[in-house]
């Protein structure tokens, strides 16, 4: 068990393993995303209340899911790095942070666009959107803190601690924002809390969510691999790879 963890954690091994995984992830991501988009945008029935504008859900909800789970994954990677000193975990965390921030931004932007036909305004202090906005600030904090340190290892540790602190706080923030929202009730209904969604509406949504996850995994693998090459540039096996490529 112990040996396996450290074997997985060695950059070389991870590089080779991810080379085999990556095509599958890309394939699954493209397949799922194309299926989900076509189904969701052309074949799923229009919403009786919102008409066709509800179809933004097929981007908004997967992005929002991903935004939150990427932060948790990043914190777990940070913990693994801090406790077992596995460098690949930190490289993955570094590769993930901008992706998570981008997903948060996509969720916010699609929410804003959705707000125009639904609420008649670009921004509403809806509980979900507010939590997303705070999450974006948390992401920016982690990315900025990592970059602020002169030594990379210290930056990595600091970012790990902050990600862990953030992940403890996310449920608290979410809970407090929901509490705040129910006390004030500015809008009559939220974007996505629908009473019941017919099967032909949520099945494409499920496919899109899975597609987004595969896309994220593929992209993270790719970014982690280039990070490995960058940091291990002096290692013998990387030099051998370069020789081979020539």
């Amino acid at each position: 068990m112990w040996g396996l963890i450290h074997k997985l954690g060695s950059p070389k091994w991870f590089y080779q393993l991810s080379a085999r995984l990556q095509p599958w992830c890309w394939g699954a991501a493209i397949l799922l995303l194309v299926t989900g988009s076509v189904w969701g945008l052309f074949f799923a029935p229009a919403d009786y209340q919102q008409g066709n504008s509800f179809r933004i859900i097929y981007v908004h909800v997967p992005a929002a899911f991903l935004a939150q789970s990427v932060f948790v994954t990043m914190a777990v990677a940070g913990l693994v790095y801090m406790v077992w000193k596995i460098k690949v975990a930190d490289m993955a965390a570094a590769a993930m942070a901008p992706l998570g921030a981008a997903m948060t931004f996509v969720a916010l932007f699609s929410g804003a666009v959705w707000g125009v036909p639904t609420w008649g305004t670009w921004w509403m202090w809806d509980a979900r959107l507010t939590s997303m906005l705070i999450l974006l600030f948390l992401y920016i904090g982690v990315i900025a803190l990592r970059g602020a340190f002169g030594r990379r290892d210290s930056g990595a540790r600091a970012a790990s601690v902050l990600a862990m602190v953030g992940v403890i706080n996310i449920p608290i923030i979410k809970y407090s924002v929901d509490w705040w929202y129910t006390l004030h009730q500015p809008a009559s209904f939220t974007l996505t809390a629908r009473p019941s969604m017919p099967l032909e509406m949520w099945l494409p949504l499920l496919i899109m969510v899975l597609g987004f996850y595969c896309f994220f995994i593929a992209l993270t693998l790719m970014r982690t691999r280039s990070e490995i090459l960058r940091r291990e540039a002096k290692a013998r096996w990387v030099q051998a790879l370069i020789e081979e490529a020539r």
Binding site: G141, L145, A148, N169, I172, S176, V177, W179
Partner: peptide, 19 residues
Amino acid sequence: LLSLLVLPLYIPVLIFGSG
């Protein structure tokens, strides 16, 4: 940087305090 890191974490305190 300190304010960027800390202010988002302060939000629950703000909500319950002013609440």
